[in-house]
Structures are given as C-alpha cells and as structure tokens.
Design a protein around this nucleic acid. Structure first.
Lengths: 331, 331
DNA sequence: CGCGCTACTGTGCACGTTCACAGAAGTACG
DNA sequence: CGTACTTCTGTGAACGTGCACAGTAGCGCG
C-alpha cells in the first residue's frame, strides 16, 4: 500500500506531472479544467506532497529551528518562552513551515545544532538565549537567517530581535513607587549579563538618579531562592528601606517570604513591585503589583522578523514594545 | 559555495560513494584504512549528510511530531509538559531524531496534523492530550507509531503511555489527612473527563469509602479561579469541613484565597492538600503540602515507549509510576 | 495569411542519498 | 589446486519532486 505520488495524481487527473506541480506551487497558467481535475484527483488519492523530494530540489526544508541556548531548567516554565513557542508554531504553521526544537545547553549540543543548521536542515533559526555575547549567535547567524526574542547582548546588530521595553517598565514601576511617597527604594536586579538584568536596573536609575545608591541594590539570578537571599541582604544593609522593586515576580515571591519572616508588613511597612506579571503574581500574599510585558505581541513581532528574513529581508529593524503597570496589592 | 556532498567526500578520500555511505550508516565491512581516510575527508570538507536525500530513499524522516491537542492556554505552563518537551528533545537528539512541534487546537489544525503524519513527514507521534477519547488519537495511531504521556481516556489500548499513579497519589494524601485526625475531608477535583480528574477522585474515595459523600466533592477545571469557586461552594454546602484535598496546586492556591477571605486559618481550621508539587506550591502562604509526580521519569518512560515503537515493538506495556507525599505547612 | 503574443501543457534532467548486486582479494580447507 | 567463504569495494538504479525548456493552440492585428 504505497503512498500516492505526484505521478499518480497526474495520471488520475489526466494531465502531466508538471501541471500538478504548477498547481501545487501556486503558479499561474493552470487552466480551470485542469485545476478542477487535479483537485479532485488529490482528494481522491489522498495525495500529500513529499517534502523530502521537494527539499532535495528546492534546497529549502520548510522548517525552522528553535534553538534553546540555556541551562535548561527554568526556560520552559518562563511564560515568556511558552508564549513564544505557541505563537511560533501557530504562525509558522500558517505558512506550512514546521518548527523543530533543539537544545544547546552543553558543548556537544551546540556542535550538533550548528552542524544541523550549517547542513541546511533548517531554513531559519529562532534563537532563545540570555547568554551575553553567546558565540552560538554568530555561528548560527552565519549559517542561516536568525532572529531572537529578546536582544542577544553584544550581538544586537547581528541578530534582529523583538523585545519588551524593559527600561521603560522599570521606570514605570519606580515612578509609581516614588509617586506613592516612598523615600528609600531598593532594587533586586536579575543577573547583570542579561538584557532584563541590565535594562531594568537602568530604568530604575533613570528615575532615582544618584538616589539609586549601591547600598540599595542587590542582585539575584531570577530564582525564588535568590530573591529571598537578596532581600535579606538588603534588609541587613538598609534596614529602613520602605519599598523594593524586584526585577521578576518569582524573585519578588522570594522577597515576600523574607520580609514576612522579618516581620515587615507588605505593603504597609515595605512596598514590593514585581516584573513580568507571571502566574505567581496572583498567587502570592499579597498579590503583586507588577509590570506586564506584551508577550504575545513580542512573540508575533519576532515571528514577523523571521518571516521577513526568510523572504529575503537583510536587516529588519529591531522591535521594542511598551510595557504596562499592573496595580494589585503589594504596592 | 556549494555544500559538499557524499561524492565530494568520496573523492577526497579516494573511495566510492558506497563506502562512505556504509561508514555513515554504521555498516560493518569498511576497512580501517578507508575508515580513516573518509573520516578525515569528512572533517576536511565539513560534510553533513543531506537528510532530504536520505529520507527520499529510506522512507523515514528522522523526526517525530509532538502533537499538542489542547486549548492552547495552560499547556505550556504546566511543568509536566515542559519537562516532557525538554526530555523528549534531549533523548531524541541522542538518536539524531528531531522533534517537530504541532498544535491541534481547532479543526483545521487537526486536519493539517493528520495530513502531515499520513504524508509520512514524521516517523512517530508523541501525543499530548487530555481530551477524553480524542478522535485525533485514532487517526494518528493509524498513521504512525504513537505514544502519549498520560493515558488517553478511552484509547488506553490504542496508544501506549507512561503516567503517574494518580490514584495512589490521591490515596497518599487522603490517608495523610485522615492520619492527622481530620474528620470532614472535602475534595476539589479536576475535570471529570481527564485521567487526573477521574483517578484522583477514585483514590480519595478508596480511602474514605462512603464518607466521600457528594456533598464533600466539588469540581474544578485546573485553573486557579475554579479553585476559588469550588472552595466557596464547599464552604457553603459543608461549613464544618476541616480539610480539603485539591487535585492540583494551582486550584489549591485558589482555594487558599477563598479560605482566607472566609476567615479560615490554614492549616489550623482547615488543612489543605495539593497535587503536582508545581512551583506555586512553594509561593503560596502557607506553602502547600502536596503530591509529587516523578515528571522526569514519566517523560523518560514515554520516550522509551516511543523509541521502542520506532524500533518495531508493537504494543509496549503502559508504565505507571509511583507518586510521593511532600509535607509542607498547609496540612 | 503571416506574425507575435498569451495561456497553457508535457518532458528530461538534476537534486543527494541508500540499497541490491556483482565482483575482487584474501584465507581456510579438503 | 579447486572450492567455499569472508571481507571489502564500486556501480547502477531508484526515491519524488521542481524547474528550464520546448512546444501547442488560440487569438488579435496588420
């Protein structure tokens, strides 16, 4: 029980391979009669084009690789990436492009991925990384059209990207805290080799100027545990702080734990601002006032960039999208 | 600057295509001298096998489709599935099989997916669904070797699966609540057309027998909001309940909100047991006593089933893995 | 009527690989 | 020495497409 080929369809429709091929590829110059006959033949035979054969001659694969260059762990739980995956699959499917997932955690993985892309097994690359100056970026960008969701630090002009305006978001939150009358505002940042780590601190400093002293800044690594630790650090260094802007909701959840253990009431004694508006923001006590990123728009913009590159655009402009303050009870 | 082909490698090594091909495919019968020459030629030329050409003749694609048959939303945030995706990519990569992601949310998507698999574009299918008796299951299973992580209700003997022992987990939690002296134990279930919904209730009933009356049971849909709602329902129907077993951590977080609003202290007035040991379990107040599923083992077992099927095994046995009670503060 | 143009159709070739087969060279054994 | 067997090698054919090209039919127009 063999799979029907384009020959079978052609025979059933009483035309030649060429005509069927033309119809399949949307060429003009197919007569209405032929068109109808072929379409019937296709449904009758249950024909599905053989992508391997097509790839062989067109030198394109009809697939895009999503490369996850991360320490694996948190990556998938991050709603940012889940949204990206979902949107990518959907948008690419519309164009009949399939998304293949690749991990590039360790050295061996990275080699495999580069070989895969160099070997022409993907028409494009959707890079997901937070590594500053990820060398993978250069290798992949050299081998195929690549884009990224979120800037790749140090490779901003090598890999087009779409991102949220982290700096704006940080300003929005900091301004809000200031407007509520808080005087000694601390911050827990993300890792300083990630865009979110850097730019959210920049926004914070934009508003507070020299009032954003070193003493009021602690660093975390996006994990809840690091939020707990950083908060403890801050309380020790600056016991009289009355607000803290935490660069992610998950770390903010950690900070809340520490504050509670220290007997500080939130928001009465210390106001807490988060970032991301992720699912934990509503399950903490009190629910977090936070900054929402337009995740879906970011993902869509990223895919737009990718499609543009697949269509031959050389250097599409990066896209930066505005964030939004979400007021709940923690500040 | 063309990509090197097997011809180029053969020429560079001074042998024929056939010999190179044999080496690539691990055939015996390649002399040590030829082997060395070819290996050098491969690294020299940077040769990467063309999968399309290979597929064309072998009738296999070297890829597996992960089909997500869900209302999109929560799917990706569920750590269960993130673990599965991660493990799947890694394990399949070891075998040089790539994972392509497909969404099958609406009718059109489902058609596309079925055509894709019928068309022979994937060697196997990793189905992810909670739809009871998902018709997609039959169509896909008929077109390619398919497995599932978690049982597909009504298709247990069509699609091999690996799953956590939900019923056991529910028993563990219920027994724990009983052992702590709770007398009026309620339950918030998941949707009753999902394995988790059904089996966690079964385990609950296993322990409580006729004490698990209708009045003590409310149904949710896995969302936090539904947990709030169900808890309110229970409090109204049975104000004197002293414990509640919630079939997921996220719903449990919702239940906590309702209990707090009603002025019930947790765990003093009402003990709360969750299920999943997901990330929210540690960010609620108090942290949730819950049931941990062996997510990584489940994912690995699922991939084992898939690989077995790809290797020709007809009907591998389903795998059911034990759960574990994690005691925190909510019960 | 002849010419050019448009709309459409069929055919041969190439894409890069695997596989079956034929055959060569070496070795063991009666 | 002849035969059988093992180990290794090269070659032609096939896989199912898209594309360039050649070719046909119809039509308008001078």
């Amino acid at each position: 029980m063999k799979r029907p080929t384009i020959h079978d369809v052609a025979a059933a429709a009483g035309v030649s391979r060429g005509t069927v091929s033309r119809l399949l590829n949307g060429d003009r110059y197919v007569s209405p009669a032929a068109r109808a006959a072929i379409e019937r033949a296709i449904t009758e035979t249950g024909y599905v084009v053989n992508r391997a054969a097509r790839s062989l001659v067109t030198q394109r694969t009809g697939s895009v690789a999503m490369v996850l260059s991360e320490p694996d762990q948190m990556l998938f739980e991050d709603p940012n990436y889940s949204t990206l995956i979902r949107v990518a699959i959907r948008r690419l499917a519309e164009r009949d492009i399939s998304l293949v997932m690749m991990l590039a955690g360790n050295e061996g993985d990275r080699d495999r991925v580069v070989r895969y892309v160099r070997g022409g097994h993907a028409d494009g690359v959707l890079l997901v990384t937070t590594h500053a100056g990820d060398p993978l970026a250069d290798a992949l960008a050299a081998a195929a059209p690549a884009v990224s969701c979120g800037a790749v630090i140090g490779r901003e002009n090598v890999i087009p990207y779409a991102a949220a305006d982290d700096r704006l978001g940080a300003r929005q939150m900091t301004e809000y805290l200031v407007s509520r009358g808080h005087k000694r505002i601390a911050m827990i940042t993300g890792p300083m080799d990630t865009p979110g780590g850097i730019q959210r601190l920049e926004g914070f400093a934009d508003v507070l100027g020299r009032k954003a002293s070193k003493k009021l800044i602690a660093h975390g690594d996006w994990t809840q545990a690091s939020g707990e630790r950083a908060m403890a650090e801050l309380l020790e260094r600056t016991p009289d702080l009355d607000a803290v802007f935490v660069a992610s909701d998950l770390m903010a959840a950690g900070a809340l734990t520490t504050l509670r253990a220290a007997g500080r009431r939130v928001p009465d004694d210390v106001a807490v601002g988060g970032f991301d508006d992720s699912s934990v923001a509503t399950s903490t006590l009190p629910p977090l006032t936070t900054i929402r990123q337009p995740l879906a728009e970011m993902a869509n913009a990223t895919i737009n960039l990718l499609l543009a590159r697949l269509d031959g655009a050389e250097k599409p402009q990066p896209v930066v999208l505005p964030t939004e303050l979400v007021i709940r009870e923690s500040a």
